[in-house]
Write a protein that binds this DNA or RNA. Structure first.
Length: 194
DNA sequence: TGAATGATGCGCT
DNA sequence: GCGCATCATTCAT
């Protein structure tokens, strides 16, 4: 079956529905070094002003602005002085929420990913949000792009996911009681928990 | 194989 | 200044 690019209506839904639905979908980025793609295997939901771990918890700022915008846009931010994290914005405009793409399995453009990451083996190439952005060459230049119009988007290639698990989100100190991390337990590329 | 730690820049208080 | 939706490296077991 032909790949189908996800439409805005896919993202314009409750984030806890969008997040698990993204597992098995394929992230595609037409970079200036070539086309890169990867099967998404781990995500986390960050939802609104009541989620203390969500960047939008303290209201609109210049950084978190994309989350407040319409669904189907990228939200890429810089963290820990050296890494970027890729999110896809969900829910309607004015309702700040997003899904963090934490890990994926390489599909197309493995050579470019390795080169971007300064790595020789594909071990842990995309297993973690910082690693994934590094391999894809994503930075704030790709922040707030339209996943329905720009060079980065997500496709449905009808890849099956048979073993979806959920857990607490990783790397946060608040909101740990919420089981808003979803992952494909059959994938070897899921990042290390705890 | 797991815990501790340093690297590193920027948004926000 | 502080803390961060991380990761590679180092050191201990």
């Amino acid at each position: 079956m032909k790949p189908v690019k996800l439409r805005r209506s896919f993202y314009n839904r409750p984030t806890l529905e969008v997040a698990p639905d993204l597992l098995g979908k394929v992230l595609v980025y037409h970079s200036d070094k070539g086309m890169l793609s990867a099967r998404i295997v781990e995500v986390e939901a960050y939802i609104g002003q009541d989620d203390p771990a969500c960047h939008a918890a303290r209201g609109l700022t210049n950084r978190n602005k994309p989350m407040f915008g319409p669904p189907g846009f990228t939200y890429i931010y810089f963290v820990y002085g050296m890494y970027h994290c890729l999110n896809v914005v969900t829910e309607s405009e004015g309702s700040p929420a997003a899904v963090l793409i934490r890990a994926a399995e390489p599909v197309d453009g493995l050579d470019v990913m390795l080169s971007n990451s300064f790595k020789k083996s594909n071990k842990n190439l995309l297993s973690g949000p910082g690693r994934l952005c590094r391999a894809f060459g994503l930075s704030r230049e790709q922040n707030d792009l339209d996943l329905t119009r720009d060079a980065i988007y997500i496709e449905n290639r009808n890849m099956k996911v048979t073993n979806i698990q959920r857990s607490a989100r990783i790397g946060i100190k608040v909101g740990c009681e919420l089981l808003w991390r979803f992952y494909d337990a059959d994938s070897t590329e899921v990042s290390n928990s705890r």
